[in-house]
């Protein structure tokens, strides 16, 4: 464990000031939100830690809004708030479900959605839900504002479309429609406070008993979260049946490329991915055909 006592911490009082500082110290500051990823990484890192821009005080980045059928979440919003939010529970229950599985109570209270997105762990639990919700990220810098679709944001393992001087300020997505249902799944090695061995989210749009649109995103099985496009294709235009969902579940193997590590072998991850997709689709089939 490294001492971090030598680093300087800038604590801006407004977003403007934060962007100002980021601009002035271009490339020299790391953004500190809840710190549940960053501080651990800095203490373990071999290199000297950078100075910090502590944005944790910026309450203007804590909000959940329902604005013209668009749900907007401020980047600093913590996962306890997201899970409990009536807006999220009603308009994006798949995200509420995913958020509830993040760490323990302490982590839920401290961890921000922005941190989860920018930390870019392939196993991050909010990401599959944000993928299937077609989320857009708002990135601001002193000179302007940029919007990036979440799928475009990740360029490879921990490689991001984020420039120095830019801050993630908001994540937004269309509210789910009446005929859309979504579910999240997570497989960890224990029940409490577990890191995902595989996770995923499914969003289906159903019209007259047929799947009109299907979006499936899987985590911890590739360098970034991936869409299971073959599985989606298998479902679109079909009525949900045992046969169809089994085929869809198996089709995910073409989209994933997991690795072996302490948490599980690649083969095990593949098997779990198929099984969980099947189990989750099975539950959704029951909901649809009710």
């Amino acid at each position: 464990m490294k001492s971090l006592s030598y680093i300087d911490v800038f604590t801006p009082r407004s977003l403007e000031e934060a962007l100002e500082l980021l601009d002035k110290h271009r490339g020299e500051l790391a953004v500190l939100a809840g710190g549940t990823d960053l501080i651990i990484q800095l203490r373990k890192a071999q290199q000297k830690a950078p100075n910090l821009l502590n944005i944790y005080m910026l309450d203007e980045l804590r909000y959940i809004k329902h604005d013209n059928e668009i749900i907007k979440i401020g980047a600093l919003t913590d996962f306890a708030t997201i899970t409990e939010s009536p807006i999220i529970q009603r308009h994006a229950p798949v995200l509420a479900e995913a958020a509830a599985t993040i760490g323990s109570v302490q982590i839920l209270n401290k961890a921000s959605i922005g941190g989860n997105i920018v930390n870019a762990s392939p196993a991050a639990d909010s990401l599959p839900a944000l993928y299937v919700l077609n989320a857009t990220l708002t990135l601001r810098s002193k000179t302007g504002t940029r919007k990036v679709a979440i799928e475009q944001f990740y360029k490879g393992y921990k490689k991001l479309d984020l420039q120095s001087g830019e801050l993630l300020t908001e994540v937004s997505f269309p509210a789910m429609k009446q005929n859309q249902i979504g579910m999240f799944f997570k497989h960890g090695l224990r029940q409490g406070d577990a890191i995902s061995v595989v996770n995923g989210a499914i969003l289906l749009e159903v019209l007259n008993g047929y799947v009109k649109d299907a979006r499936i995103a899987l985590g911890a099985v590739a360098p970034t979260v991936v869409r299971a496009t073959e599985s989606e294709k298998t479902l679109i235009g079909q009525r949900l049946s045992e046969d169809v969902i089994l085929k869809a579940a198996q089709a995910c193997l073409t989209s994933i490329s997991p690795i072996d590590d302490v948490r599980g072998s690649a083969a095990y991850r593949k098997e779990m991915c198929v099984n969980y997709l099947y189990m989750t689709l099975w539950q959704m089939m029951r909901m649809v055909n009710l």
Partner: peptide, 16 residues
């Protein structure tokens, strides 16, 4: 030991 941190050394929680 390759999992010498509580992240991957799985102690039981109340749920277990």
């Amino acid at each position: 030991v390759v999992n010498a941190a509580l992240t991957d050394y799985l102690l039981p929680t109340a749920l277990e």
